[in-house]
Nucleic acid binder design. Structure first.
Lengths: 145, 145
DNA sequence: TAAATAAGTTAGTTTTAACTAACTTTTGCA
DNA sequence: TGCAAAAGTTAGTTAAAACTAACTTATTTA
């Protein structure tokens, strides 16, 4: 395995899911998501966003009119919502252990796009069960410190 | 009464209500309402829209960020919805008489901003009653031709 | 592990929206 | 009915968003 140069940020490339997640977030919070907004939310350049947006438009996940604005299509919104939902489930799960919010955010960002539906369902069920066993949870929290 | 020059369109000035009505319509249909969209929807100049939008922003009916977009505030959306609702009630009422859609549209546009709540409620109740009396309605339709 | 592919960057340009200023037209009311 | 206030217009300007091109950095996979 090649050793990475630690002076370079590993800056994992944004996926389609990252874009959709942020776009939905922007629309919910500000009411609109312009290329410039997406770029600053993802901390990447406008040029990069332009490319991806045009791709998402041709893929039918959103409708884009340059210089005007964009809207998620039904398909795009559905997908975006499921991504946001998954994000929430994972966050809720980690919250059970009393982990710091910042750490939770970091971890969820890192793993969310790699989790399969079965695993996610397992985690969801597990979260529900753990919530009913406060004593067990307390023991787990102690173990984590 | 001064005789108007018939070669000039009478072009009644748009009211705050006209603006809100169109903005809501644009947001519902296109997902966003830019100054340029509003201007062409109301068939007035951008300059004029800029002025009004800035005013509506200071009045708290919408939040505007130039070059970005605008969103209705809770108050603005509430007002816009009630305007749209009134428009619909009046349209429904005139539809009872089998009047042409174009004519209905023209008339509703002309009168909607001048109708008081009591009158509107009366018309709403009347519409409901007439719908239960098809025979009477048929008679009224004939009288209108 | 080295191509091939995908994503990102910077720099410079283009396009468009939106603004302002100066002036005209409407409208409503004293 | 005429004047003040409100709304609209045009023309020209400014500013921001978004685009393109050329190139670099990551990532994936044969």
């Amino acid at each position: 395995m090649p050793v990475k140069n630690p002076s370079l940020k590993s800056a994992a490339s944004s996926t389609v899911e990252d874009y959709l997640e942020r776009i939905l977030e922007l629309i919910n919070s500000k009411g609109y998501a312009r290329v410039v907004d997406i770029a600053s939310a993802l901390k990447i350049s406008q040029a990069s966003v332009t490319n991806m947006i045009q791709r998402l438009d041709t893929e039918g996940l959103l409708n884009y009119e340059k210089y005007r604005g964009l809207v998620l299509t039904t398909a795009g919104e559905k997908l975006a919502r499921s991504i946001a939902h998954r994000h929430q489930l994972l966050t809720d799960f980690l919250k059970l252990f009393g982990i710091d919010d910042d750490v939770i955010y970091h971890d969820v960002e890192g793993m969310e796009h790699h989790i399969s539906p079965p695993t996610l369902r397992a985690i969801e069920a597990l979260t529900a069960q753990l919530r009913r066993r406060p004593a067990l949870l307390a023991k787990l929290k102690l173990a984590g410190t």
